[in-house]
Design a protein around this nucleic acid. Structure first.
Length: 187
DNA sequence: GCCAACGTTGGC
DNA sequence: GCCAACGTTGGC
């Protein structure tokens, strides 16, 4: 018997993400390595078409108020990474296009604007709570890939999108990326 | 409109 | 530090 067997260690409620399940998406990169993401937006609020019509086809991805999503944007995403553009709360919901990270994490100033819907009085400009990135439309999917199709596909069963439903920013593996681009007709 | 999942808050 | 209450996301 081991001299001192500590009782089964419970996973801390909030593990630092550098050691958590997503450690690999924050890990140092090989030279030139590109990583992949998925970002959600309700099309009634801001659709992929809206992004294509925006000046320079670019927008700041503001108003995210979830710490996991924030961490992905602040510390995970790097310039030239690509992201699927996902329409949530839509009929049907699904992936409709591809965009590129064109500016890395910087403070989400909407958190400091009392007139803004997502004003957060606890976000201090000297120590910002919330971060965002800038994304630019790259191209639409030829055929959207709807959520039921994703959920029904064994090759995609491990997607963070499926596993952690409610997160608005999630990582995508290179294999999932290739596979979904093929499904979307943009391989 | 309902509800599952889960993060956050606050009482103790 | 625990945990119940509450809020949010987003599928269905």
């Amino acid at each position: 018997m081991p001299a001192k067997k500590s009782p089964a260690k419970k996973a801390p409620k909030s593990m630092p993400y550098e050691q958590g399940a997503w450690a690999h998406v924050f890990a140092p990169r090989a030279p030139g390595e590109r990583r992949y993401w998925l970002i959600k937006s309700e099309p009634d609020v801001f659709s992929f078409e809206d992004l294509e019509r925006a000046p320079k086809q670019t927008t700041c991805w503001d108003s995210v108020r979830n710490s996991s999503a924030r961490n992905f944007m602040r510390d995970g995403m790097k310039k030239a990474d690509l992201a699927f553009y996902y329409h949530s709360n839509a009929e049907p919901s699904g992936i409709v296009g591809i965009c590129e990270i064109v500016r890395e994490g910087y403070p989400d100033y909407t958190a400091w604007d009392p007139s803004h819907d997502y004003f957060d009085e606890k976000s201090d400009p000297d120590m910002p709570t919330w971060y965002m990135v800038d994304v630019k439309a790259v191209k639409p999917f030829k055929t959207m890939v709807a959520l039921p199709e994703i959920k029904g596909d064994p090759a995609l069963a491990e997607m963070a999108l499926v596993k952690v439903g409610r997160l608005s920013v999630v990582p995508v593996t290179p294999a999932e990326w290739e596979y979904l681009c093929a499904l979307g007709g943009v391989a």
